[in-house]
């Protein structure tokens, strides 16, 4: 008799890796539907920050609408990292898209001069919202639609400025992809290595990185998020190799920021309150 064959799979939890070719197909079709067929636009505008999220959206835009119909805008402030600007150029050249530069320093500083003592945090928020103004205005000027670039991890962590350029795009292809999945898609799309491998940063303050702000790496946070959202217990997630502190940190961030993922709150005084009693889907038209 031969040696006994024992098959004993180890528990690694659910994989968060995706079939990125399928994701690409899905998101291209999504963009064509929502931008063109539903909203009637053939052109898109997006803020190209030099980071991976906007680079992926730009690449998907090129596949959906053609390079000539994707307009990328760099929006530097004098405090912005020079590498953000040069990385945006690398992405635009790789994709063959038009890259405009609109410096927001005067917008931001013009306001800042009127309110002395502005903290870095406040100024970062003003920068993010100044970019939102540019995004909408350039979309209007160019007859294009401004796309959102936010990913699921930052949405769940509330790690963005409410109503910034990434948050306000009427169509947002990455909002259900975790950050590590955005990286996976970026690799599949063969985006420049420099935007995939650099430390993610909102670049709203000097030497800022996402992972130091958040206190956990995306690689670890995303696995916890995935299992937490799918109703796995803390005990189960711990068994996958995560600490109680890490799990608590992720849950705390998610549960402190539900408001940020919702529309503004309206006082309900009737039995026909919009989104409470009167419910129609976003694409409902008679």
């Amino acid at each position: 008799m031969g040696a006994l064959t024992i098959i004993k799979p180890s528990n690694k939890g659910e994989s968060i890796d995706l079939n990125y070719a399928l994701v690409e197909q899905f998101l291209i079709e999504f963009l064509r539907e929502e931008v063109t067929r539903v909203k009637g636009f053939n052109k898109i505008v997006l803020g190209l920050s030099g980071g991976v999220d906007s680079a992926v959206v730009a690449a998907l835009g090129v596949k959906a609408f053609g390079a000539q119909n994707v307009i990328a805008i760099r929006m530097p402030h004098k405090m912005s990292s020079p590498s953000s600007l040069s990385d945006a150029v690398i992405v635009a050249e790789k994709l063959g898209i038009k890259l405009e530069t609109i410096d927001i320093t005067n917008m931001v500083e013009g306001y800042a001069q009127q309110v002395p003592g502005m903290s870095n945090r406040r100024k970062g928020n003003v920068m993010a919202r100044a970019r939102m103004i540019v995004g909408f205005d350039m979309a209007e000027a160019l007859g294009a639609l401004h796309l959102g670039t936010g990913n699921k991890t930052e949405r769940l962590f509330g790690y963005y400025t409410w109503h910034d350029i990434a948050d306000t795009g009427p169509v947002s292809p990455l909002g259900d992809l975790l950050k590590t999945q955005v990286w996976g898609l970026a690799k599949h799309l063969e985006l420049p290595e420099v935007v995939i491998s650099k430390a993610p940063s909102a670049d709203l303050e000097a030497n800022q990185t996402d992972e130091s702000d958040l206190g956990i790496t995306y690689a670890r946070a995303d696995v916890i998020i995935h299992h937490y959202l799918k109703a796995y217990s803390d005990h189960y997630i711990e068994s996958l190799g995560f600490t109680k502190d890490e799990i608590e940190l992720v849950k705390r961030k998610i549960n402190a920021t539900h408001w940020k993922r919702a529309l503004p709150i309206h006082a309900m005084v009737s039995s026909t309150a919009i989104h409470e009693f009167y419910l129609r889907p976003v694409d409902f038209r008679l």
């Binding site: 129609r280 889907p281 694409d283 409902f284």
Partner: peptide, 11 residues
């Protein structure tokens, strides 16, 4: 009609 109608079923 499409599938996701919410209260639009009424219409």
């Amino acid at each position: 009609t499409g599938y996701f109608l919410q209260g639009g079923v009424r219409e």
